[in-house]
Design a protein around this nucleic acid. Structure first.
Lengths: 210, 210
DNA sequence: CACTAAGTGGACGATGTGTCCACTTGCTGG
DNA sequence: CCAGCAAGTGGACACATCGTCCACTTAGTG
């Protein structure tokens, strides 16, 4: 159930029980071509510079065909990104601590989340830059998930709602790319974020009881 | 001296001592019109949607005239923003603590810097969105200043270089707009950022508690 | 008052977007 | 095997924005 993946993957909605409008073979082949070509193009250069025409041409199809499934560049990047993000979301919901559920230590959970996101960013910055440039980031379903997760982790703070966006800001793909271009390694970024996680979430400040 | 403001304000370079190529009256009038019109347009709607044509039309001049001084939308926004940012920079360099120089308490200085930036954002988000959309933020001179400031404040941390971009990320105009649109008041944002500043920079605190 | 260079504005070519629609083709059921 | 049709295709089209170019205008000067 809940197979309404059409907006993300471009797959046709499998209507409930009734006659399912199957996807034609050539259409499937073309989608595969589009995703393969887009993956390559995004990785090759600045994703903001890639045009729909470029993708169509690289995939060997016409512009009309491309637009039929993907209304813009971002939706293609999101389709490529989707499975990776789902994997991480599943880890968070059902995996082992410190990433997965763990009542005791929100600071370590946040640090683990940061580390996992850095791994995701390191592997797929180009896709994230293609999908979430600027404010578009906040309109994706994924951001909603991260937001909720962080807000819950910050539940003991005075204002979790206000903190959540603040704590997610350093994970914006533009920030990550900037840091990497400055010569900062993923590990250093992780350590910085871990310090931030512990500093903010470790039981209120200097009087840490033990 | 050092009047080389042409890139920021569009003013002609006053060559050293020799014959200064004065600005003509009609040119000055038109620049004023451009800035006034742009200020209004930026405030009215999403700055990313404003075109050079819109600004030229609103200012009552031709496109060619507009391009003569401002190569793009961002440079106009920056010209409008410049004096406000300079004022804050001057406060940081020469003002009174906690914003100004103060050897004793980097955490409070960072909190004060955050508060001042929130004030700036609250008054001029539309201009900042016009000037620094996405990665363009890192290419402005202002970002370099903030970066250096924060890096110095974080000097006692393990990796100030890596922390600086991380600590500046929540001040991205897109983040601020998002939070305000979520109904979070400037004061709540300030308090969240203050907590972050103290959590990360207060030394004694959470260092390997267990 | 006439000269000159700074200043002006709109036409222009290039590029990208998204839509439209006449044609093609994969999948049936007869 | 074939015919029908709906899904699928691709390129032409209309539109928007960009940035440049250059013939004309005008402010300032001697």
């Amino acid at each position: 159930m809940t197979k309404r993946t059409d907006l993300l993957t471009g797959l046709p909605v499998t209507a409930d029980g009734s006659g399912p409008p199957r996807e034609r073979a050539d259409a499937a082949r073309n989608r595969a071509r589009v995703l393969a070509a887009a993956e390559e193009l995004f990785a090759a250069g600045d994703p903001a510079e890639i045009t729909m025409e470029d993708i169509a041409k690289a995939a060997g199809i016409g512009r009309g065909t491309l637009y039929r499934r993907y209304p813009d560049r971002a939706s293609i990047a999101r389709a490529l990104l989707d499975e990776h993000e789902r994997a991480l979301q599943s880890e968070i919901l059902r995996g082992a601590p410190p990433l997965g559920p763990d009542e005791s230590d929100p600071a370590e959970r946040l640090a683990a989340f940061y580390a996992a996101m850095v791994d995701l960013l390191e592997r797929h910055v180009h896709l994230l830059l293609g999908a979430e440039t600027g404010s578009a980031r906040y309109r994706t379903g994924a951001y909603g998930f991260w937001f909720t997760h962080v807000r819950v982790l910050a539940a003991d703070c005075p204002d979790p709602e206000a903190l959540a966006d603040t704590l997610l800001a350093p994970l914006a793909p533009e920030v990550y790319r900037r840091q990497r271009e400055q010569g900062i390694s993923p590990d250093r970024i992780k350590r910085g974020l871990a310090a931030l996680a512990r500093g903010v979430l470790t039981d209120s400040g200097p009087k840490s009881p033990e």
